[in-house]
Amino acid sequence: MTVSQQATVPLEAAGQRFDQALAALFPAYSRSRLADWIKRGQATLDGRSVPPRTRVHGGERVALAAALEIETPACAEPIALSIVHEDAHLLVIDKPAGLVVHPGAGNRDGTLLNALLHHAPQLAALPRAGIVHRLDKDTSGLLVVAKTLPAHTALVAMLGRHAVERRYAAVVEGVLIAGGTVTAPLGRHPVDRLRRAVREDDGKPAVTHYRLRERFPAHTYIACQLETGRTHQIRVHMAHIHHPLVGDPLYGGGLRLPRGAGAALAAALRGFRRQALHAEQLAFVHPLTGQALAFQAPLPADFQGLLAALRADAAGADR
Rank of each mutant, 00 (worst) to 15 (best):
T2D: 13
Q5M: 15
Q5H: 15
A7I: 03
V9M: 07
P10Q: 10
L11T: 14
A13M: 15
A14W: 06
Q20S: 14
A21Q: 10
A24Y: 02
Y29K: 11
S32G: 03
A35V: 10
R40P: 03
G47W: 09
G47F: 11
S49C: 06
R53H: 12
E60C: 12
E60S: 11
A63Q: 13
L64H: 13
L64P: 08
A66P: 05
A67S: 15
A67W: 09
L68C: 08
L68G: 07
E71P: 09
T72M: 06
C75N: 13
A76I: 04
P78K: 03
I79H: 06
A80D: 13
I83H: 00
E86R: 13
H89L: 01
L90Y: 03
L90D: 03
L91N: 01
L91H: 05
V92S: 09
I93V: 15
A97C: 04
G104F: 06
R108S: 06
T111E: 06
A115D: 05
L117M: 08
P121R: 06
V132N: 13
L135V: 10
K137W: 12
K137V: 15
D138S: 14
D138Y: 01
S140E: 09
S140A: 13
S140Q: 08
S140G: 10
G141S: 08
L149M: 15
T153K: 09
A154C: 12
L155I: 09
V156A: 14
A157Q: 09
R161I: 07
R161N: 09
H162T: 05
E165R: 10
R166D: 07
R167V: 15
R167C: 08
V172M: 02
L176F: 03
L176Y: 11
I177Y: 01
I177S: 13
G179I: 04
V182F: 08
T183S: 14
R188H: 07
H189N: 12
H189K: 02
D192I: 05
R193T: 02
R195S: 00
R195W: 00
D201R: 14
R211Q: 10
L212Q: 07
L212F: 05
F216V: 00
T220R: 05
Y221L: 14
I222P: 09
L226N: 04
G229I: 12
T231N: 02
H232V: 10
R235C: 06
R235H: 11
M238S: 01
A239N: 02
H242N: 14
L245A: 05
L245N: 06
V246P: 03
G247R: 08
P249Q: 12
G254T: 04
G254V: 05
L255A: 08
P258R: 01
P258G: 05
R259N: 08
G260K: 02
L265K: 00
L265C: 01
A267Y: 00
A267P: 00
A268D: 04
R273I: 01
R273G: 05
L282E: 01
L282W: 10
F284C: 00
P287I: 07
T289P: 02
G290H: 06
L293P: 00
F295I: 02
A297T: 06
P298N: 01
P298I: 01
L299D: 01
Q304M: 13
A314G: 07
A314F: 02
A317Y: 04
D318W: 07
